[in-house]
Simulated scan of single mutants.
Amino acid sequence: MQLLSSNFSPYSTRVRIQIRKKDLPIDIIAPTEPPLRTAEFAAKYPLAKIPVLILDEGGSISESWAIMEYLEARFPEISLRPKDPLGIAHINMLARYADMHLSPVLFPMFVSLLMGGVIDVDKELAAINKELAKGEKLLNSLPAFSERKLNIGDIALATNLLFAIETPKLFGCANILQNYPGLASWWHWVNEDVCVKQGMEEMRTALAIFMANKK
């Protein structure tokens, strides 16, 4: 199997972390044949975005969470998913929070970085802080992370939170987590994992390259 991936993509990064944690024989490659954002890529992969998992038996799977669930079911030997229904619900809550609540409020800052437009920084930081407060409450409502193993819900949240931490720095906010001790403690815990740490370093490097190319 092959994973079409980009270090700049939090969604690709979460799958790369999972692959490394599970020590899976999956080649991680850049989308070059055909290139991303081309008609050829869209014709070959219906959702026209990465990550894409190309299957040995033919066909492919798009959307990071669908890929991660597939890999957990296909390769259960090293499991990163709870077995009980409540535990499964908890990891889905973390992933949905990351994708449906946290990520959307980062878009205005990303668009500003990409296109050079002017934004109301205070307004956008307030929106991010509102969602981080939700994340703090969510983590506090779940079983203590210090008493369980890392799971795919943690991995999904970690990659999105990386951008929630790093992007505001480019707009003058040095420590967006300073008022969220629960999130900050969880962030420290999740980054103790070697595979997570590697993924975070790859994303930071990709972001630095992106910003350098914008100058």
Rank of each mutant, 00 (worst) to 15 (best):
G87R: 03
S64N: 05
P46T: 09
I209L: 12
I50V: 12
L86V: 14
A89W: 07
I176D: 01
R37A: 13
S112R: 01
I152P: 06
V196N: 01
G182V: 07
Y97W: 12
A174R: 11
T32N: 15
S141G: 13
R20M: 13
A156C: 12
V105Y: 03
T32C: 10
I17E: 00
L55C: 06
I50P: 08
S112N: 09
L55I: 02
Q178M: 12
T159L: 03
A164F: 02
S141W: 07
L161C: 10
K22L: 05
L102K: 00
P104K: 01
T13D: 13
W187D: 14
C173A: 13
P181A: 06
E131C: 10
M200S: 13
E131G: 07
L177F: 01
N213A: 14
L102F: 06
D122A: 15
F163Y: 15
C173M: 09
F41H: 10
L36E: 09
K83R: 14
Y180L: 03
E124M: 07
V15R: 00
K130V: 09
L177A: 03
A126E: 15
S6F: 06
R16C: 10
R16Y: 08
K123H: 14
Y70E: 07
L138A: 06
I17M: 00
S146N: 14
T167F: 07
Y11N: 12
S103L: 13
P35G: 06
N7T: 10
M109F: 02
G87I: 01
D154A: 04
S60E: 11
E131P: 07
I88D: 06
L170N: 11
S5Y: 11
K49T: 14
P34K: 05
D193S: 14
K21R: 14
F171K: 03
F171E: 08
Y45E: 10
A206N: 07
E136P: 11
S5M: 02
A30D: 15
Y180S: 12
P10F: 00
I19T: 01
S146L: 11
A208I: 00
W186D: 06
L3E: 05
E202T: 05
L207N: 04
E33H: 14
W189P: 04
A184P: 05
